[in-house]
């Protein structure tokens, strides 16, 4: 066997150890140790430039770390491709690309199809089902440039859903979508979590952390705190991550105002 089948920390959906990423000479992530257990809905929060997206990209192997390793359910990313649904930031692509919503969702099946095979009836049906899950079935044949921001985001999520992956990683899925889309997305993610999937979300809105998530990673280049939201979402941790001038709305209610 060429492949190393020894599992490392197989009880964690995501296990990150000693991870350091630099852009040039500046560390973007410094010595990250992180564990996300299976079946939780985890938010990664932190100020701008904290390295939230970089953490996700490094975990997925899109950014090369200078040190450290990452495991999903005990395996390196190379053995887990196709079992991790990834939803990049919506603005990372050009939505004027000549294609339809269903076509984008089918892209989630390309890996499963393998080389030289084209999507057929089965793939069309799976793509439609995934679009229906995000309430977008009526837009299957719509040009993606004609969709609103929230609809585009839902198409992106459907593309990750169609893989039927046990782990879902979303980069700022709530950025620039309206309140009703946000409610649809959160309800869907909670449903998936309740079905046993692990959901990891880069999130920017501190006011909704407690109502949306049950697991929290607070990041500012280093890990500030991680664990169940009830234990980690504290004024001290927020100050440590965001600095002293943090708006009071984000501080948990039980803390007396200074």
């Amino acid at each position: 066997m060429m492949r190393d089948d020894t599992l490392h920390e197989p009880d964690q959906a995501l296990h990150v150890e000693d991870l350091t990423v630099t852009y040039g000479a500046n560390p973007v992530l410094w010595d990250i140790d992180l564990d996300v257990p299976p079946g939780v809905m985890c938010a990664i929060v932190g100020p701008n430039g904290a390295g939230k997206s970089t953490l996700i990209k490094a975990a997925l192997g899109l950014v090369r770390p200078v040190a450290g390793h990452v495991r999903f359910l005990g395996r390196p990313i190379g053995q887990m491709r196709g079992q991790i649904g990834y939803v990049p930031q919506r603005h990372s692509v050009d939505w004027d690309f000549p294609t339809t919503a269903r076509d984008v969702v089918e892209m989630g099946l390309y890996r499963h199809l393998g080389w030289l095979r084209r999507p057929g009836k089965a793939e069309h049906a799976r793509a439609l089902a995934a679009l229906a899950e995000v309430g977008m079935q009526d837009y299957a044949d719509r040009q993606i440039s004609q969709l609103s921001g929230g609809q585009q985001q839902r198409v992106f999520i459907a593309r990750a859903l169609v893989q039927d992956a046990p782990i879902l990683i979303l980069d700022e899925p709530m950025a620039g979508v309206d309140a009703s889309t946000e409610a649809i997305i959160i309800a869907l993610l909670k449903k998936l979590r309740d079905a046993g999937r692990t959901i990891i979300v880069v999130h920017h809105d501190l006011t909704t952390v407690q109502s949306y998530f049950d697991w929290l990673v607070m990041l500012n280049v280093r890990i500030i705190a991680q664990g169940p939201v009830s234990e980690t979402y504290s004024a001290d941790n927020l100050r440590a991550a965001y600095g002293r001038h943090l708006a009071m709305i984000a501080v948990p209610a039980e803390e007396p105002a200074p």
Partner: peptide
């Protein structure tokens, strides 16, 4: 023709393609 869907995916969303292991 042979790499149609791969070229399409890479042209539209290279990061996603990379995350999928292409």
């Amino acid at each position: 023709l042979a790499l149609w869907k791969e070229f399409k995916l890479v042209s539209f969303d290279a990061d996603f393609a990379r995350a999928q292991g292409f």
